[in-house]
Design a protein around this nucleic acid. Structure first.
Lengths: 111, 111
DNA sequence: TTCATGTACAACCATTTGGTTGTACGTTAC
DNA sequence: GTAACGTACAACCAAATGGTTGTACATGAA
């Protein structure tokens, strides 16, 4: 299995994109079902252009993709990108687990 | 088990804090072993004050804590906060899994 | 006590962010 | 063909961001 190498800049963009509640909400909505930007914007108390901007941020972070259908742009999710963020958080947890094991080893040593 | 309720603002701060490569590196270093701000700053090509700022961002996101020891401030990790971010990413994947199950159910219906 | 070390804090800067209003263009419905 | 709908893009704004240099204070070593 070939794993795509993720750059720091890409990770920056993913976490930056998720650092806003509206954008997290957009991600979860399009995970349920892909939908137009207009449909998304009906859920938020802000201008359409603001929602567009949020979608653009998510797109640049590769968390969503856009598909033109007539005059509409449908927003689709990218679950694989979520997995990339998780991989990093899991790496942190593994560092911590190694530390816990080192401590256990020391405690188990003969005095 | 009581799970601490995480607000949107708190989640914003966690992801925002992780949206910078230096800060991610700081997190992983203090996961290995807690250390002073000066010790951390030796690893980065930027001013000490810049590293301080990064630590402050991590502290406000509850990803690290500081402990004064004499003239030093030791930076310690907070692995439970990483878990909070992971919980949210897992929630995204569960939404996706439910979607996959719904599709399977439809495909399994009698024609 | 003096000097070195480690840190806190302030002020500054260019850039980015999360919003706003407005204009223009393509598609769709009637 | 006309009007409505959906979107792209620009310009604007206040606040935040990721860095800089500088000053000041507390702790630790000699």
């Amino acid at each position: 299995m070939v794993v795509h190498e993720v750059t720091d800049a890409e990770i920056d963009r993913i976490f930056q994109a998720l650092a806003d509640a509206t954008r997290r909400d957009i991600v979860s909505r399009v995970l349920v079902v892909g939908q137009s930007v207009t449909s998304l914007s009906e859920h938020y108390d802000m201008s359409f252009a603001a929602v567009q901007k949020h979608v653009t941020v998510l797109e640049r972070a590769l968390l969503v993709t856009k598909e033109r259908r007539g005059r509409e742009q449908l927003v689709h999710s990218r679950i694989d990108t979520i997995g990339r963020a998780q991989t990093l958080l899991t790496a942190f947890e593994q560092i911590w687990a190694q530390r816990a094991r080192r401590i256990d080893d020391i405690l188990a040593e003969d005095p």
